[in-house]
Design a protein around this nucleic acid. Structure first.
Lengths: 234, 234
DNA sequence: CAGTGGTCTAGACCACATT
DNA sequence: ATGTGGTCTAGACCACTGG
């Protein structure tokens, strides 16, 4: 029956089995740690090791002073990787920086970067090519205080996290990503040499520091057959 | 300096600080656990508690018999929730099962369900409505052995994981999700009452058991302005 | 072989929640 | 006051790695 090598693995297996056979139901209290020690003939540390795994996997939740409780696993949490290296089906041959400038924000920048209308915004625009043809158009906006040097000639195409990593620790950064299907407007259509109204995938990215202050906003338009998004349950 | 309440939190904070200030670089070995005990004046269990947190957060990796090593956090891992309850911007009013039948598989079903051409496939098709108008079209395919009762009148619109949850434990299931932009073909266009060639968001879902055996394949076509995908770094 | 991480123990004290 | 989970300790043995 049991394939587990260690005592704590057997406890995990047993508890998972009791959850999946409805012996333990959602929000039921797990037996107390001392009770589990007796049930499995293990020390409290071993029991807690098992519980810590189940906690980290999301099968339990704890309330100090009360107990550990069953949390029904919803199998709807997916994880995906997103980076400029992986977003294109076949990668890309080159990325050209077509402009880097200090601009007056429009309403979208004021909204997404949470800045005052009189502040300035660093705007970076790239075209990404495959086989000599543009396959994607990338706009990135950063508040001027984020400290990017726009005269920098070495502005290689890179992810937001790399762009700002010297200004903000990766531990103090989080990102929101939104995927939509949109129709190309005149500007983007011309840049990508496609008819106005063609469908494009739009990936918007907002970068924040730990306190929630926006550090960047990006829009990436991609020809729909040049990209795909892939996510998997954890 | 330190806001941490507990000794193990201070150790975590200290190690994270050394990573972000490049004292510890990618793939550097962390000092041995006994060395860390001495450095922080803590027992091995407390040191291991800190290390276990850093391991679970992906800042370290371990090789038994060798040591613990620094893993540079790539901030490109996003997590998203996907379920038929949350995928629509404004939810949906109703979902009509428009057909449930046993069909002979086409090449895509043979491929995605990894079945033989002479096996049978359960096909379920739904239309999802908002304000009386169709906003999405859902096709789900399951190998016949998956044991869904197609005559079941109570085939409510639900996620794959709910559809098969009595046949397969949630602990033995994983799902792959792919998002694409596509042009509506004649069949889908007619069902959704839109012009052929209109852009649609296509969400494909493959469900597997733990051994990798396919348990289901689904295609969900959604009007692009009725949905959005949202992911956040962990 | 020595050094490393992985598991496991008994026992202690604290913070929190309920009665 | 009692029971709960949360932290911490010292000490032991095992499995794995490398020289």
């Amino acid at each position: 029956m049991s394939n587990s090598k260690f005592k704590y693995e057997e406890i995990i297996e047993s508890i998972k089995h009791k959850i999946s056979t409805n012996v333990y139901k959602d929000n039921d209290p797990l037996p107390s740690e001392t009770a589990l020690c007796a049930e499995y003939g293990a020390s409290r540390i071993t029991v807690r090791k098992a519980i810590s795994v189940l906690l980290s996997e999301g099968h339990l939740y704890s309330i100090q002073g009360k107990g550990n409780y069953i949390k029904n696993v919803k199998k709807n949490k997916f994880s995906m990787r997103y980076s400029c290296k992986t977003i294109f089906n076949n990668g890309y041959d080159e990325a050209k920086l077509i402009s880097s400038s200090l601009v007056t924000p429009d309403v979208y920048m004021v909204y997404n970067l949470n800045i005052a209308p009189n502040e300035r915004v660093v705007a970076l625009k790239w075209l990404i090519y495959e086989d000599g043809l543009p396959i994607a158009y990338d706009e990135k906006y950063l508040p001027y205080f984020a400290g990017i040097n726009i005269s920098e000639k070495s502005l290689k195409y890179k992810d937001f996290s790399d762009l700002v990593k010297n200004k903000i620790s990766v531990y103090e950064m989080y990102q929101d990503l939104r995927i939509k299907g949109v129709n190309a407007d005149a500007d983007v259509a011309e840049k990508l040499r496609i008819p106005v109204g063609s469908i494009l995938m739009l990936v918007e990215l907002n970068v924040y520091d730990q306190s929630g202050l926006p550090f960047g906003w990006g829009k990436l338009y991609i020809l729909p057959d040049k990209t795909r998004f892939f996510a998997r349950t954890e």
